[in-house]
Simulated assay, not measured.
Amino acid sequence: MEKKIKVILLLLVVLAVAGVATHMFLTPSTVETVGSKNVTDMIGRDIEIPASVSNVVATSPPMTTVLYMIAPDKLKAVNFQWTDDEMKYVPSQYQNYPVVGGWYGTQDGSYEEFIASEPDIVIESIDEGGDGDSSTVNERQEKFGTIPVIAVKDTTNVEKVSESITFMGEIVGAQDKAKELNDFNQKYLDIVHDRSSKLSDSDKVKVYYAQGDDGLQTTPSHSTHGQLIDLIGGENVADSVAQGNTTGGVQVSIEQVLSWNPDKIITNDPEFYAKVYSDSNWGKLDAVKNKEVYLSPQSPFKWFDRPVGANMIIGVPWTAKILYPDDYKDINMVDTTKEFYSNFYHFDLSDNQAKEILLDSGLKESNL
């Protein structure tokens, strides 16, 4: 009898061990994904989110851009469709994100489509001050139900974006990539801060930012859209028509632009760029006569504007090379472009591809 009891006990132990092993080895994903953590967002809301965030969407392009740069495999939707040109340097695995709209200039977001992308969290942009957007964040949270909405400070200013990039990296588990992006940005900010601070008023080049297919919309200084001109130390010729408007664009006439006669012109519009050198009116400008018109590279995000945000980080050295080529000869834009695209756009450019991007933007080969 005693021997039988020992055998039964031994069998029970074996079965128990086998049961634990079966649980460990047959259901690893369940064991690993169970759990949550509490975080405080950037307007002080305490929120419970999954311990490991795998799927994330954002309600505006600047936030989506950061997510694409630091955690593209966790991004599950974008706010607008890339054009064929913008798609040129997007890896194939990222070319088919669903388009869910958003709440920014177009206000075309679809809660149903956002929810259908099955995000673990939703990133919502707030103004730098934060408090004024708490009602919007609360409204989003109500509409998204149990999906946590995380408020993150506006990332549209390249000089102030680091805190938000760091925070988003912590939220989505991409701390190292977020630090790498901030380090790249700070490197060039330090360079241009130092050199622009030494410019006298007489040293500053006059710059016109041409928007629209006719080039006759622009933005004055202190606008997020033309911020790189200010940062590098250019003189934005449109200041005289600002009239307190530092956010939206202003309409001007060709006569007004002729009276300013800028040294350099920067544009985001390929249609305008394609015809500016053959237009007799624009041809009267020194910038056109001297072949000093530049088109922001477009792919996969524009370097200079539209959207404003972390995509403009690579635009800092590019704009510096345009405005003051002699002061920035030590920056190799081919190497800089390859580094940025490889690390943050997840696409390895050849030397020739990097040169093509830069030459197509108007930079001279001697200034690469």
Rank of each mutant, 00 (worst) to 15 (best):
E356H: 02
L363T: 08
I313V: 14
D351K: 11
D213F: 11
N311F: 05
K289P: 04
M312C: 12
H193F: 06
Y208R: 08
Q81M: 11
L358Y: 05
I322S: 05
K153R: 13
Y345H: 13
E235P: 06
Q93V: 14
I115L: 13
S253T: 15
F167K: 10
D46R: 14
E271R: 12
P317Y: 04
T156L: 07
D108H: 06
D203K: 14
D131C: 00
A210V: 01
M312D: 10
P62D: 01
V57F: 09
T27L: 08
M63Q: 10
Q251A: 15
Q95R: 14
I70M: 07
S52D: 10
D203S: 13
N290F: 05
E113D: 11
A21I: 14
A310H: 01
K179Y: 07
L199H: 02
K364P: 11
E139W: 05
K302W: 02
Y104T: 01
K302V: 14
D131K: 15
I313S: 05
I123G: 06
H193A: 11
S221E: 09
G19P: 09
N290S: 13
G309P: 05
L368M: 15
V20A: 13
D46Y: 04
D269R: 10
G169R: 06
V252G: 08
P98Q: 01
V90I: 15
A310Q: 07
V237H: 07
V250M: 07
K364W: 00
E365S: 15
D239A: 15
